[in-house]
Every structure is written in structure tokens, then in C-alpha cells.
Write a protein that binds this DNA or RNA. Structure first.
Lengths: 248, 248
DNA sequence: CCGCTTTGTCCGCGTTTCGTAAGGATTCGA
DNA sequence: TCGAATCCTTACGAAACGCGGACAAAGCGG
């Protein structure tokens, strides 16, 4: 857990830093550069739009409070013509603010004062996501289930399952981590990507998922409830072994 | 009842405590230990680097003011070869200081004098973020028992045991620390995560646990009472040995 | 622009859990 | 053997927990 091989796949990625406070900008720039990223800098919203069009960065780090147009508005406008990931910086940690940020189309969110280390970690994690999506994962089977992550298809016993996006993500997560209990908070972070949120969201999605993958949803045999701890995807040990091959 | 839930997934994580003031170190060590962490200690920067390399702790608690090289510098150097989370301790609460600390790569920050309880909370929260999808704990056997902590499953002689959350946590604790006496207060802190509380809580939970794991609960052979001292989980040395293999 | 689906939130209900208290049993020392 | 300290046992009830149903907002495709 402690030793992250400097991800060569992530090196030399181009990052556009939008920040009007010179001090903050300097710190962020230095850290991102020493993490191996190429950093461009602008200080207001209009330059941002221009720069994104011209330079096509791999990610935008966007201050929420900007001279001229607001960060959320910038983000919204970016979204009209590009899918470039946006990491939003904000002074406030209020939930409302966070919601606003994500609503405007940001991919992640960081509250000031932030640790530059955290910034780098987040940037890496976002980029990794987008990289991972482009590198196809090999399909694998576990128990009666077969997951083709890159095609976003799952089947049970040969019959394809019709899952919604969230249901698919959740099932995929469990298939990749069988026989392990996850509490709702962890699921919220790992599958939803939220740092905080209503835990009943998980309860409900689990229920909906069960209705589609379990014979009798009220007596789950795969996605079981572990009282007071969370949920676990149960699979025979033998199956789990053979499945683990596929994961690696 | 009043305290945070004991987090079995975080238990037994290795923490390196870097602090030159023996008084502070002692308090911190005791609290971290009774929260279920394994604590190593060093008192200066060079030892820190060495120890991190050698022991690979899961987290470093680092005093900012150290003899020899300064804490921020130590942190910076750590960052050149590892991403181990760092929690920085400092005497000053000045914002500038905080910024410095975070810039050097610390994950969080705690100003002295701090409450040991706060320390434990911070440590937990940092680990929780980083642990998440990390490697699940390997299952192991001890005597007739088999514990799979990440699946939250235990069995005795092959038969799965149906335990409640608390019962599981308690048994897991004893399985990880066999042939060792624990008084009720320690159990309350380590398993329940409480600083204060009614000790009869343990008595009752032990009794409930015994009913499920002992052939004859009133003549316990595994979870035995040590009069005037606490409880101990008895297992043949030979079994304990073989069990230790599994742990490694 | 309008339906349909997805998805998050809320509420009420039944179940399980777990702390607490109180009385009985056991151990230990004198 | 007696008394005090310690531990066991039992029972109760509040609180926690998970579940299903329903609803509304947002997203999506036509």
C-alpha cells in the first residue's frame, strides 16, 4: 500500500492549472511538476476556455472562485464541448458547495486549504480512472457470473443481466472483491466516488441489484447482508480461486 | 455506546511514532496500542527514515520539532521514496506552520497539546481512506478455529459460527492475541473503542460468545476466566505456532 | 418538448442487537 | 466458615439496523 510505483502511464500528462492566487498556484505547480506532470497556468475563466481548446490538457485543476466568471460556470461551459476531467478547488467545505461543484460537471473536489500531496493524489486518481477506462480489462467469470467490464456486460448462467449504470458498477465491484465485507461508507467511496453521502443510497441500490441477480431477493445467496458490518458477495472458495486468476 | 465503532479492518496496523518528548510519546503510544494498533517508536529523523524502510509502517505520526533534522524535512525525504501517510504533530497552531506541514507532504496535522483521543480518531480516518481496497487480511487458523477477518467469517472445526458483530469482533481479537490475559478495561478500549464504560458489558458479551463457541459455556475451555485479572483465550502452543504461520 | 428510466431520498415497520440492571453463584482470604 | 470481592446468569427494553414502498428530481431518448 505504501509504495506507489511512479505511474509511467500517468507521467507527462498535461494539466491546466486555473488559479488566481499566486501563492497557491506556485505550490500546486511545483508539486504537480515534481510529480511528473506538465503544467500550464492561467488565471481566469476566459483564458481557461481558450487554453483548453488550444492545448487540450488531460485534466483541468479549477479554482472555484475566479475573477470574472465563476469556476462552476467555467466548468459548465467546458462541458459543452469537452469531456476533459475537472478537479475543482474551493475555499468552502460546505456540502452545498460541493454539490454545486459536482453538479456543474466537475469530476472531483478539493477544499482549501488542501495539502498539495492530496492534490497530486487526486489528480493521479482521476487520470488513472480515465486511463483505466481506455485500457480494456479482460472479462472473467466468478461462480455463475461473467463480467466483461470494458463492454459493461454481465451475465448470470449465460443469461445477460439488464442492469443500470449504478447497479453494474456495484456488481462489478463485488465481483472483483468476492468474499469480503464492505461497509456502506467504503462502498460509497469506492463505487460512488463520494466522500460523504446518505448511506441509504447503498441500501437501495443493493436492493435493486438483488432483484435482478438473486432468485429470491429477500433471501439473498450472493449479495448477502452482514448485520452491523455491511455487504459481502459470497462465492464458493473453489470458484473464487479460479476467478482470481481472471482478475490478475 | 458513545464512542466510534471499533474498526476491525484497521486493527493491527503498524504505526511509527516519531517523538522525542518521552511524556508525549508515552501517552500517544498507550492510546494507539489500546486502540489496537502496533506501535513502533523512534526519536529522531534519521531513525525515522531507517525505520520506514525497514518496517514499512502503515502510517507515521511525526513530531514537527525534532532533534537533528526537522519534521518537515523528514517528511520531504520520506516522500522521495514512499507514499506512507504522515500525520504531523506541532506545537504551533499558526496557519503558516500548517501550510508548511502540508506542503512538505503530510496528510494531516495535529497541534499540541492534542487529546490522545483526537489522535486516534485522526489516525483511524487517515488509514480508512488509504486502506479501503488494499489487500485483504489473510485468513488463518488457530486450534479448531478459522478466522477470515475480511469476510467476517469464523468457524470452529469446520462449522461456521453465527456471531453478532460484537461477538465477532471480540472473538477475532482473542484469536489474534491467544494465550494472553486482557482485563475488561483493555477490552473495552481495544474491541469496543470506548474510553470509559460499564465493564459488565464485557462480561455479558463474553457469556454470549461462550454460548456459541464453547461446548459447555459454564466450563469454558477456550475463552477462560482469569480470576481478578480478566479473560484469556487458551490454545495449545503447537496450534498457536501453526496458526502463526497463517498470519504471516 | 414529452414520456420513460434511472437514481437518490424519505418514511414506517419488523427484527436484531446490545447495554444495563439485578440477583445468584463462585472464589479467595482470614 | 464467613464475608467481601468478583464473576455469572438472566431478563428487559431502548436503540440500531436493514428492508420495502413510495416519491420526486434528474437524465435520456425520441
Amino acid at each position: 500500500m505504501t509504495q506507489p510505483p511512479p505511474d509511467s502511464a500517468l507521467r507527462d500528462r498535461r494539466i491546466l492549472l486555473v488559479e488566481d492566487d499566486p501563492t497557491v498556484a506556485e505550490v500546486a505547480r511545483n508539486y504537480l511538476r515534481s510529480a511528473g506532470f506538465l503544467v500550464d497556468e492561467v488565471t481566469d475563466g476566459f483564458q481557461t476556455i481558450d487554453s483548453v481548446t488550444a492545448v487540450r490538457p488531460d485534466l483541468v485543476v479549477l479554482d472555484r472562485k475566479l475573477p470574472g466568471i465563476d469556476g462552476t460556470e467555467v466548468c459548465r461551459r467546458l462541458r459543452t464541448f469537452t469531456d476533459v476531467p475537472v478537479l475543482m478547488l474551493t475555499a468552502l467545505s460546505a456540502t452545498e458547495d460541493r454539490i454545486d461543484g459536482l453538479e456543474s460537471g466537475a469530476d472531483d473536489y478539493l477544499t482549501k486549504p488542501f495539502s498539495p500531496r492530496e492534490l497530486v493524489l487526486r489528480v493521479r486518481s482521476i487520470l488513472k480512472r480515465t486511463v483505466d477506462e481506455s485500457t480494456p480489462e479482460a472479462p472473467f467469470a466468478l461462480g455463475p457470473f461473467r463480467l466483461d467490464a470494458s463492454a459493461r456486460k454481465v451475465s448470470r448462467g449465460g443469461d445477460p443481466l439488464e442492469l443500470s449504470a449504478r447497479e453494474f458498477d456495484l456488481l462489478a465491484f463485488f465481483l472483483k472483491h468476492p468474499n469480503q465485507v464492505f461497509d456502506r461508507e467504503t462502498l460509497l467511496r469506492s463505487v460512488w466516488g463520494w466522500e460523504v453521502g446518505d448511506l441509504s443510497t447503498i441500501t437501495v441500490t443493493v436492493r435493486r441489484l438483488r432483484e435482478k441477480i438473486e432468485g429470491d431477493p429477500s433471501h439473498a445467496t450472493f449479495l448477502t447482508t452482514v448485520w452491523g458490518a455491511g455487504y459481502r458477495f459470497d462465492v464458493e472458495e473453489a470458484d473464487a480461486e479460479s476467478a482470481a486468476e481472471g482478475v490478475r
